[in-house]
Each structure stands twice: as C-alpha cells, then as structure tokens.
Design a protein around this nucleic acid. Structure first.
Lengths: 189, 189
DNA sequence: TGTACATCAGTGAACGCGCGTTCACTGATGTAC
DNA sequence: TGTACATCAGTGAACGCGCGTTCACTGATGTAC
C-alpha cells in the first residue's frame, strides 16, 4: 500500500539512522540489507525504493553518523570535555553511537571514492571542531590546523586501537587514558 | 598425493604469508578462503588440513604480519627514519606490506578475543619499538611508555584516516605529513 | 635394507546458507479533469 | 468538490551467486617389521 510522501521520507530516514548505527557496530559487510530494513521496522523488499544500492546507503549513513557526531561535539564546552567523552570507556563500548571515523576508517579505505569523499568531509568537520576548541596560541611553531590534525589522528587511533584489544587487557584502558592525557597536552603546545 | 613434512610446513607458511598480505588489503571479510589458497598456489580444498577455520588463519596471519613489521622496525636507526617510513605515501598505498594495526583495527574489533589478543601483542610490540627510539628524557611529566603510546596512537590514526580519504584529497597527504611532524615533536616532549 | 601398509596433504566436486538484488503484487496516495 | 486513474512505498517470494566448510578420492611419504 502506498503511503504519504512525508511518511516515506520519515521511513527513509529511519533506515538511514538504523544503518548509521549498525554499520558502525558491525562494519559495512557485517550487516545485511535485510538486517537494516528489519531494524528500521520494514521488510527487505522495499529497500530499492529508497536507495540505488547498499553502497549508496553506506555513503548516506556515514554522512548521517558524522552529522550526528558534529551536533554532539558542538555541545562540548571545552576541549577537555570533548576529548573526555570521545576517549571514554562508554565510547569504546558503544561504537554504534560514537565516532564513525574510528569505527569505519578501515572499511571506508576499501570503499569507492564516493564513500571516501563523505569520510573526508567528516574528518574535516572533526578537525574544525578541535581547532575551534584549541587554546588561543600554541607554544611552538605548529599552526592551529596542524595541531588540530595531530589531535584528531591521536583521538581516532587511540579509540580504534582500544576497541581492537580485549576488554580485559590493560592496553584497552591505557590507550584511552593515556591518549586523552597526551592529546590534551598536545593541544596546549 | 602426500608430500613431505617440511614441504607441508612450507606450504602452510605460504598460505599464512598470502593471508597476511590479502587480509590487510581487503579485510578479513573481503578475501575468500579460495582466494587465499589460490594466491598461495593451491586449491581451496586443502585449507582445513592446515587450519581449523578461517578465523584461526586470521589470528595466525595477523601474528605473522606483526612479526614482519617488527623485523622491519628494528632496521630503523632512529625514530625519524621509522616514522618517516610508517607515515609515507608508499605506506599509505601498500597496506598489504605495512602496518596491520592501521589496516585491521576496525576488523579486529569485531573479531573474538583470540584475535584481539594477537592484536594487543602486536600493539605492545609497536609501543616497545617506539619507546626504544624515544629521546632519553622528555621535557615534561609523561613517562616514556605514555609518550610511546601517544605516538603509536597518532601513527595508526593518521595512516588509517589517510587511507579512508580519496587519494586526490588534500587531507590524504596532510594527514601523513602533519602526523609525522607532530609525532616527532611529541616524541621530544 | 627392503617390503607392506597406514597416513595424510592436496584435489575438485558438492553441501547448505545467506547475501544483494529483482519482481509481481497490493492498495492507499497523489493527480488530472 | 467529486470521480477515475496513475503512481509508487511496502510486501514477500524468488533469483543467481559466492561464501565457509565437508567429503571421497589420489598417491607419495612415513612407519612397522
């Protein structure tokens, strides 16, 4: 049965939202189209009324995940608050609701440029957010953008590595705690 | 036809070596058992004479990739040489012959603890290598291990992000160059 | 050292399964008059 | 404003395909005597 245009758009967005979460948790190849549709409350057959392909949804879901992250980042009052949330045990535990860059960098590196482009825009957004929260002036020669890139690389690396290590392993917590400490220190340099 | 024990062991190692490369390039799910065996020069049926499962090979191939990296790292004379190789365009272009942590962190985070354990050992090896090349004494409070962890997180993050961005994008080179610059600076702090 | 037999690495067909995608169908929504 | 028809979002069966894994088979290697 046909449904209203606004309803159809809402349904589209529900699929994108489900994908934004599930892809981060299980990777692009770890979630089937039917899982995605079921998670959004539909049967799988309608998928191609909304998306050209699973890959097209991947690009859209990635953009949605980055947009959600940007909104949350803008709520942080200072760099310490932002980094503290990013490199926290809760963030490590819930990839589906946290940084898509840390969760999907490897997957995206094997995707076509259309997806990589969305990823690049998301990373630029992260750099901009960090740059905006950087102390006014660093001690030595690096520009604000250079410092922000260094901090972002460290954030993503520490979180991604922490998740790839057993939860019980000393390194899991150490990467978060030491990553946070050294990222904050670096921001001040 | 049966073959000699030494030959069988060599064949086993050839499969592991092929897997160590292909998994880094295409991810665990991106390579089929038959691809792996063909790449090592065999047909797929013999796979289970050597490995209990594809996942068991993943753990073995990951360990092999980390071991290979350790050997190469130990050839570096100083931190600048090591980091310069790690964060180079050549390294970005050839994931199959470079850091398994940067290539597979996301994939490993979705694998069972047996694989994560191997990953953790590999990351510890990276930390130890960096720590050994750190200048004798930092300027401020961080311990040598803390500084090494910060550098490793930044290395892995910068390389993984660089690969997830289109080659033509400004960020691809910027992440490598700025990551390198700020990692070296950080090592001295 | 030579002989007889068991072992097992490698082959290639086959297995069941889940995947991405397609399709005929339904019926409420949107549109033309 | 009301009526007739076209549209199209959602359903669920079906498609071909490639996956990880299993199996019967082969024949050189390893072993027991």
């Amino acid at each position: 049965m046909r449904i209203s245009k606004t309803q159809a758009r809402q349904n589209h967005d529900r699929v994108v939202a489900a994908a934004a979460e599930l892809f981060r948790v299980s990777g692009f190849d770890g979630v089937a189209v039917s899982d995605l549709m079921k998670s959004a409350g539909f049967t799988h057959g309608g998928f191609y009324n909304h998306f050209d392909s699973k890959e097209a949804l991947a690009a859209e879901a990635l953009a949605s995940a980055f947009a959600q992250m940007t909104r949350e980042r803008n709520r942080a009052g200072d760099l310490e608050e932002m980094l503290g949330g990013y490199l926290s045990p809760a963030s490590r535990r819930a990839p589906g609701r946290n940084c898509p860059a840390a969760a999907l960098a490897g997957d995206v590196s094997r995707q076509p440029d259309a997806v990589k482009k969305v990823f690049a825009d998301g990373v630029e957004g992260m750099i901009a957010s960090v740059e905006a929260l950087l102390p006014r002036r660093g001690r030595r020669g690096a520009s604000r953008r250079e410092r922000a890139i260094g901090v972002v690389a460290k954030m993503v690396g520490a979180l991604a590595l922490s998740r790839a290590v057993p939860s019980a392993n000393r390194l899991a917590g150490e990467l978060l705690a030491t990553g946070l400490k050294s990222a904050l220190k670096e921001a001040r340099d």
